[in-house]
Design a protein around this nucleic acid. Structure first.
Lengths: 87, 87
DNA sequence: TGAGGTTACGCCTATCGTAATAATG
DNA sequence: CATTATTACGATAGGCGTAACCTCA
């Protein structure tokens, strides 16, 4: 689990739309779809309710989104030695 | 910057010895050495005082170590959906 | 049947391990 | 000269894009 999956997940969770999330991330749909699958697999939890479309976050997904935001905030708020780190 | 470099750095910062840090991480010295170089390059900051050995953290290194621990704590303390995630 | 998501496939980069090389104490 | 760190090099895994394919409203 790295910052990449975390960023991807936040984008998807907020957009609930792979194409828009992908656009926001500057990559294609395909890797985003795979990333979500991998993430759910790693966590052993389903993060989204899906029909064909992503309808909403599961409860686990909501909890995880909260965690991700905490992590991102921690990383971003931290005082940097000299330069900012791109997460 | 991902959790990998963060983990490597914490190990090295705590051990101040590449071989021990590498052992702790379950990999070889070589990638750890490269990781520290890459990290310093990314941050634009020297993290260690080095002679041939790593003698100690620079001030920037100490600050960064603090940040890393905060991030790790955030990740680890977060309530997990079902399963624990290995950072 | 069209909008949205997934899978297949090949490419490319990043990371690893082995091993050789430097440096200093 | 022994210990520790770095560099060189080849192998491999993982992430990406393109494009084909599936699925439900």
């Amino acid at each position: 689990m790295d910052f990449r999956l975390l960023r991807y997940f936040v984008a998807v969770a907020e957009e609930l739309h792979l194409a828009r999330a992908a656009e926001r991330l500057g990559i294609e749909q395909s890797p985003v779809s795979r990333a979500m699958r991998d993430l759910e697999s790693q966590l052993g939890v389903q993060l989204f309710d899906r029909s064909t479309r992503l309808t909403r976050l599961t409860w686990a997904g909501q909890v995880f989104l909260g965690e991700c935001r905490r992590v991102q905030a921690t990383v971003e708020q931290a005082p940097r030695p000299r330069r900012r780190v791109s997460v």
